[in-house]
Design a protein around this nucleic acid. Sequence first.
DNA 1: CGACTCCTTGAGCAGCTTCAATCGATGTGG
DNA 2: CCACATCGATTGAAGCTGCTCAAGGAGTCG
Lengths: 223, 223
Amino acid sequence: MYITLSAENRPDTSLLAQDKGHRTSPRTLLKKGKHLYREGDEVERIYQVETGVVRLTRMLEDGRRQVIAFGYPGDIIGFPADGCHHTDCEALVDTTLQAYNRAALDHGNGDPDLHMALLHAALREISAMQDHVMMLGRKSAAEKVASFLNVITQRYGEDLGVYRQIDLPMSRSDIADFLGLTTETVSRAFTALRLSGVIALDGAQTIIVMQPAMLQDLSRGSN
Amino acid sequence: MYITLSAENRPDTSLLAQDKGHRTSPRTLLKKGKHLYREGDEVERIYQVETGVVRLTRMLEDGRRQVIAFGYPGDIIGFPADGCHHTDCEALVDTTLQAYNRAALDHGNGDPDLHMALLHAALREISAMQDHVMMLGRKSAAEKVASFLNVITQRYGEDLGVYRQIDLPMSRSDIADFLGLTTETVSRAFTALRLSGVIALDGAQTIIVMQPAMLQDLSRGSN
DNA sequence: CGACTCCTTGAGCAGCTTCAATCGATGTGG
DNA sequence: CCACATCGATTGAAGCTGCTCAAGGAGTCG
């Protein structure tokens, strides 16, 4: 799950099949800016994002922050490690989530389909995090920003004739903390992409990708 | 699985419980320097490392390399993404692995215990990769090297009286590609740790950690 | 309309990389 | 057994990318 995956289509319907009592509540609403859970909390439920976007972050003692992932509709969030959450989860916009009982992880709750869906969601997340690691470790600032925009565009962009349009629910600072950069560097990369005609900005949040192929080239380091 | 996890004890016996025919072969031997699979290969089996160490790497078109993880005994490797491997896997030393049928992922092969063990292994890997992401995105070169040595020491080090000793089966270049640095920077960080008395070197591969607590402090950025 | 927050832009600096040379360990052939 | 070749690790010097610090601009909400 999550942003960093190389472009591929996502089964965008509810992954966890017809439930048989695993839902602990029919639906959770999380207002913009509210936390779903925090680092260290015991995991009681896992969630699938239905609408909206959440941000998973982790902090170092001295305040340095890393955005681990953004959770878009269809993504499963809240996988435990040693029974605890290792990230904070906050809604970037009003978000609805489907809650599932944590017990579904430990024993399929008697439902093999659910268990398998969770395992496959975990495998997708591993793959996404591998992309993230590759990007953080070995790409330049410009490539990181291009990669980020490229994935968002391919996965969540809307067709706009020859162009594509995306809406970014996260701040420059969120993007910077996702990419291991500073807000200034992210901003400069946006400006450079705008000046070279690859993207156009309509406000800070709305982006029109004028040259999707070029964006993809840049994300791969083809200078 | 994998290196980056914050220190915690690992259930170090064979995770996949008494098998019931899932093994496709009783054991696989992989000689040092040999590949178990390559990026793009179809996933036919998944493996648990029994002895030895493997290295999972990914490459960009222009040759830049990122080490995604090191696989130590007990770790599960070969999780598929879209049915394919997204990393190369190479043995750093002679390694033995237990192979399991890939079908165990898709349907538990009728064995709920196996399925659950795989899911939990996947969750552990997600947690480890979150640590890796945090490190790559937000730690300095010195902190990265200290973090790496700290984890290896805590997880795989041998007690040596008050000190601890570790053997590094990977080259400086492997470490650099794991940490998103160059070999020169890694080497300089090793030298700095040696000059400050935190570690001592016996050849390039064997390290004696003289001040484990200090190493841990450095890994957290407490300068 | 004003205050706040976020984004952008600029200038200088620091950390890491790059390029290059030396050192050291390992292995091989004479 | 020793000379030599080779590969990885270390060290040095210079350069560049991205960070820090600072100021100004733009959008938003009361």
